[in-house]
């Protein structure tokens, strides 16, 4: 035993030599604040509170902007006057009617786009031959900005509903196809081979394995690309329409009604959030097994 060790020994044997509170051992590792933990879990209450703070800060920014720029050409309406303009639009104008017209165009166009997306996407994701055949042309056409098709569609399809629906389809269908193809490619090989060894044919595997496995992913893709559908709708309605939300936007522009414009923007945002929540609910409802 070394002399040092011997010298230390009494302390070890008789802790009473140093009275008072026992020394607290230093904690190991760094404690992180729960709000700043990388990829940490957050309690529900904190989550809701933070979301509320987020919305309130957005409103606060708006309020601040509306007081800073309250008049002149660059004018921001207050939330209150926006609300008033919205109510006015609802009661005297035909906000409900325009909302319906726009929603119908998006619904029809996006439904067509999704139907094509599901069929072509699952085909491309499941068959190497279809992938080889389809990916190059889709890759080429995809880089044509869909908005650039507007005048062409107006020329070809007139100024009624058809070109608007067609633009919604054109602006979203390639993303839907390619993203749903990725979803279908993610079906585990073992699952497909199991189905085959259980006696399933190709069609059964597609219908009973690939489709159900892809379903929650398809809903997610629909959720993400829905914003693109509204984008295309606005472009179509800005150029040629006599009803619809974006048409009201151009009307408000003619009358220099910034508050009305803001009210319509808020309507867009609310529609977006509502459809997003609905699709999320749908996904959890129809695919509880894939809930994250």
């Amino acid at each position: 035993m070394t002399p040092e060790a011997t010298a230390v020994e009494p302390h070890v044997r008789e802790p009473s030599v140093a009275p008072g509170p026992a020394p607290v051992p230093a904690a190991r590792g760094r404690r992180e604040h729960p709000l700043a933990r990388l990829r940490g879990e957050l309690p529900m209450a904190a989550r809701v509170a933070l979301a509320a703070v987020g919305v309130v800060s957005l409103l606060a920014c708006w309020l601040l902007a509306s007081t800073l720029w309250s008049s002149g050409a660059f004018r921001v309406p207050t939330p209150l006057s926006t609300l008033r303009a919205g109510v006015e639009l609802w009661t005297d104008g035909d906000l409900g009617h325009d909302l319906l017209a726009s929603s119908r165009r998006v619904a029809v166009g996006y439904a067509i786009s999704l139907a094509i997306g599901v069929v072509a996407g699952i085909g491309i994701g499941s068959f190497a031959s279809l992938e080889a055949y389809g990916e190059a042309p889709i890759g080429l056409v995809r880089y044509v900005p869909a908005t650039a098709l507007t005048p062409l569609f107006l020329l070809w399809l007139g100024i009624d509903e058809a070109p608007k629906v067609a633009l919604v389809v054109a602006g979203t269908v390639f993303y839907n196809v390619l993203m749903i193809a990725d979803v279908a490619r993610a079906v585990p090989r073992d699952m497909v081979t199991s189905a085959y060894t259980l006696g399933a044919g190709r069609w059964t595997v597609l219908r009973r394995v690939v489709f159900p496995h892809s379903w929650p992913g398809i809903v997610d893709v629909a959720r993400v690309n829905l914003a693109g559908a509204w984008l295309m709708l606005v472009v179509a309605e800005l150029l040629a329409a006599n009803e619809g939300l974006a048409f009201q936007l151009t009307r408000a522009y003619r009358f220099r009604r910034v508050d009305t414009m803001f009210a319509i923007l808020v309507v867009f945002a609310v529609i977006g959030v509502a459809s997003d929540l609905f699709l999320r609910w749908l996904r959890n409802r129809t695919a509880p097994w894939a809930r994250s």
């Binding site: 073992d190 699952m191 081979t193 199991s194 060894t197 006696g199 695919a287």
Partner: peptide, 19 residues
């Protein structure tokens, strides 16, 4: 010639249908 229900297989990974 190909897979069929006369030869059942349990593969290495989990291959149950989770839905």
């Amino acid at each position: 010639a190909g897979p069929g229900p006369d030869r059942g297989m349990v593969s290495q990974g989990y291959s149950l249908f989770p839905w």
